[in-house]
Simulated assay, not measured.
Amino acid sequence: MTREEDIRKAVEVLRKGGVILYPTDTVWGIGCDATNSEAVKRVYDIKQRDDSKALICLVDSDARLQRYIRKVPDVAWQLLDCCDKPTTVILDGAVNLAENLIAEDGSVGIRITQEPFSKELCFRFQKALVSTSANISGEPAAQNYPDIDPKIIEAVDYVCWSRRQEHKPHKPSSIIKLTEDGQVTIIRK
């Protein structure tokens, strides 16, 4: 299967409200349409995760990020410009996303991916994509496809073929919270 076919099939499933497993710029992820609350609920169920613990979103560009944050602070752009590894920013003022994806304080974690497969997937889907590590809550993140629990593979609607053969170390993203009033908190280095 070509990468193009793989992405086309994944997008088809996402548009129907399905849940996919896919390689990201960090670890393997469970993904769905970040604007579809039913799909987001399924991701929480698959991970066996309390829905009070927020999930993050993946987007392909600065422009797409701005569709989901009321006002992106200048410090966020500066931070994203200087990061040399995948970095998720938690920003206030989340909009146009599923309610069960937005934290109680109105914030959401979002990352602009530069990795070719996930970037193309986000571009073709034309929406934010939920991106949470492909593991049962509390278990180690799946760095590579063989690390994914079979229960998760069985629970999703589509498993991407791209990068399944890969065997190399991957780490979750850094996470930095930026508030509208300028406070910066490093959640995960």
Score class of each variant (00 low, 15 high):
Arg70Leu: 12
Glu12Pro: 05
Glu120Val: 02
Ala54Cys: 11
Val13Leu: 08
Glu166Ser: 15
Gln48Glu: 15
Val89Gly: 02
Arg8Phe: 12
Phe125Leu: 08
Tyr22Ile: 05
Trp28Leu: 06
Ala34Ile: 05
Ala76Ser: 13
Ile148Phe: 07
Ile56Tyr: 04
Trp28Ala: 07
Gln78Glu: 12
Gly106Ser: 08
Ser52Ile: 13
Pro116Asp: 11
Asp181Leu: 11
Glu104Phe: 06
Ser37Val: 10
Leu79Asp: 01
Ser61Gln: 10
Gln183Met: 11
Gly17Ser: 11
Leu129Val: 15
Thr179Val: 04
Ser173Cys: 08
Val159Ala: 11
Arg67Gln: 13
Tyr145Val: 03
Asp81Met: 09
Arg15Val: 05
Ser37Ala: 12
Thr88Leu: 07
Ile148Ser: 04
Pro116Asn: 10
Gly31Pro: 06
Glu115His: 13
Glu139Leu: 14
Asp147Arg: 07
Glu4Tyr: 10
His170Trp: 11
Val108Asp: 06
Pro169Phe: 10
Trp77Pro: 00
Ala128Asp: 05
Leu121Thr: 03
Cys82Ile: 14
Glu5Asn: 12
Ile7Tyr: 00
Ser61Tyr: 07
Thr26Arg: 02
Glu154Trp: 04
Ile175Phe: 02
Ile110Asp: 01
Thr113Gly: 09
Gly182Arg: 09
Thr185Arg: 11
Asp33Thr: 05
Val89Arg: 00
Val40Trp: 03
Arg42Lys: 15
Met1Pro: 08
Ala76Tyr: 00
Leu80Trp: 03
Leu65Pro: 00
Ile152Asp: 04
Asn36His: 07
Gln78Cys: 10
Glu115Ala: 15
Asp157Met: 09
Ala10Leu: 04
Leu129Thr: 06
Leu58Met: 15
Ala98Met: 09
Glu99Met: 10
Tyr158Leu: 10
Asp74Val: 09
Lys177Met: 09
Ile136Asn: 04
Thr185Val: 12
Gly18Glu: 09
Ile90Val: 14
Ile176Tyr: 01
Asp50Ser: 13
Arg163Ile: 02
Ala134Arg: 03
Ile20Pro: 03
Ile187Trp: 02
Glu104Ala: 14
Gln48Thr: 09
Arg64Phe: 06
Cys82Glu: 15
Phe125Glu: 02
Val72Arg: 00
Val27Asn: 04
Asp45Lys: 13
Gly106Asn: 06
Ala141Cys: 14
Ile152Gly: 01
Glu104Asn: 12
Asp60Tyr: 04
Val19Gln: 03
Arg111Thr: 04
Lys16His: 11
Ile112Gln: 01
Val184Cys: 11
Glu99Cys: 10
Ile20Gly: 01
Arg67Thr: 08
Leu97Val: 08
Arg49Ile: 08
Ala76Pro: 01
Val59Arg: 01
Ile30Ser: 03
Gly29Ser: 09
Leu178Tyr: 00
Asn144Leu: 04
Phe117Asn: 05
Asp33Phe: 02
Lys168Ala: 15
Tyr22Cys: 07
Cys160Lys: 05
Arg3Lys: 12
Cys160Arg: 03
Gln143Met: 14
Val13Gln: 07
Ser52Ala: 12
Arg67Asp: 15
Val89Glu: 00
Lys168Leu: 15
Pro140Val: 09
Asp50Tyr: 07
Lys168Ser: 15
Lys177Ala: 13
Gln183Lys: 15
Val72Met: 03
Asn100His: 10
Gly18Ser: 11
Arg188Val: 03
Lys151Ile: 10
Lys53Pro: 05
Asp6Ser: 10
Thr185Ala: 11
